[in-house]
């Protein structure tokens, strides 16, 4: 069964199509959630709520091209993870640094294997990790991140700067060389 057909049958409430959609995206979305939340039971809870919302809102979704369903599902899952984080983490407590303009070089970091990158991202504090995931991995800009987290754009920039600084510090401690 192809993806457009699955979507159409899910709109009619077909239980089998729903299961196929779940099997197609559950593993990937579970790892997405785990990048935001470090606890497995919490990630399962978030995923359960997210798929419930996906099945409830799929009637309003319009399939346009390959990958659009994944983007739509990913957005719902990420939003649900952010809602979970907002209940337990106060993003307003993070400070903003207006005078920081110097970019942080993450050349060595980007050369690491994907599993190592995910592991290092998991070592960041929740605020930094969230902004880094939203900006670098999900591709949102600072204005969108500020709107999603309820913080200013500058705060989002500061969080990203600090996150990258910490990642560079960790790589330096582990012996990675920066620069030329």
């Amino acid at each position: 069964m192809k993806e457009p057909e699955i979507i159409e049958r899910c709109k009619k409430g077909d239980r089998k199509a729903q299961r196929e959609l779940y099997d197609a995206y559950a593993d990937r979305m579970y790892r997405v959630v785990l990048r935001y939340l470090k606890s497995n039971p919490d990630a399962e809870d978030v995923l359960q709520v997210a798929f419930t919302k996906i099945y409830a809102g799929i009637r309003d979704f319009e399939y346009r091209e390959p990958g659009s369903a994944e983007s739509w599902i990913r957005r719902i899952v990420v939003n649900e993870a952010l809602m979970w984080l907002r209940k337990r983490h106060n993003f307003h407590m993070t400070e903003s640094l207006e005078e920081i303009h110097e970019p942080v070089d993450l050349g060595a970091f980007s050369e690491l294997p994907g599993e190592e990158i995910t592991k290092l991202i998991g070592q960041l504090p929740p605020g930094y990790r969230t902004v880094f995931n939203l900006y670098v991995v999900e591709g949102y800009n600072h204005a969108e991140i500020g709107g999603m987290l309820g913080v200013t754009e500058s705060t989002s920039r500061t969080q990203l700067y600090k996150a990258k600084s910490i990642l560079r510090k960790i790589l330096t401690q582990e012996g990675f060389q920066y620069g030329t």
Partner: peptide
């Protein structure tokens, strides 16, 4: 340069998620 690094990271993470 910075954006290139971010793109690399994004692609690697996406592949890992699969």
């Amino acid at each position: 340069m910075e954006h290139d690094d971010d793109k690399k990271v994004r692609e690697k993470v996406r592949v890992t998620e699969s």
